[in-house]
């Protein structure tokens, strides 16, 4: 299964993966609107602890604990084999957050309900937005 490989030795801590992620997951697909108006949450998070930095996102576990913990089947495996959230049904109980061994699920909002925000590996793209945006190949899309 192809996944985003995190090459921490190449990460320059530029946050461009986050910007690309926000844009890709916005309604407008416009970088400035996505950040300034839509307040989209990034699915990846860049961490820094000198000299380490890396962008961390869902690793799409084979036996994903988040899927087991989900109270109404919102967290599921899609036809590509990736772990994704059904945004229409998620109620934001944060049980997936409670069990995610990588700590990569964020707390978002969807109307009145909470919404678990996590990497969906950009279903509308052949290469995830973060990988494409990374200027230094710190994120690459390959078999893991």
């Amino acid at each position: 299964m192809k996944l985003v490989k995190i090459n921490e030795d190449n990460c320059v801590y530029c946050h461009l993966c986050e910007v690309a992620c926000k844009t890709e997951h916005s309604v407008s697909k416009d970088i400035i609107k996505a950040v300034k108006k839509e307040n989209v949450l990034s699915r990846c998070t860049v961490e820094f602890n000198y000299p380490y930095s890396a962008s961390i996102m869902c690793r799409h576990c084979d036996d994903a604990p988040c899927i087991f913990a989900c109270q109404n089947g919102s967290m599921h495996r899609d036809e590509r084999g990736y772990v994704v959230v059904n945004t229409q049904t998620c109620v934001g109980c944060w049980m997936c957050i409670m069990v995610c061994p990588y700590g990569v699920i964020k707390q978002g909002k969807n109307d009145d309900w909470g919404l678990s925000i996590k990497c969906d590996l950009c279903p509308d793209r052949s290469i995830p937005a973060c990988v494409e945006a990374c200027p230094n190949e710190a994120l690459t899309f390959e078999e893991l």
């Binding site: 320059v12 801590y13 530029c14 946050h15 461009l16 986050e18 910007v19 970088i31 400035i32 950040v35 300034k36 820094f48």
Partner: peptide, 11 residues
């Protein structure tokens, strides 16, 4: 234009 992504700050 600035979206305060802080790319410039870290770079």
């Amino acid at each position: 234009r600035c979206i305060k992504c802080k790319a410039c700050v870290e770079q």
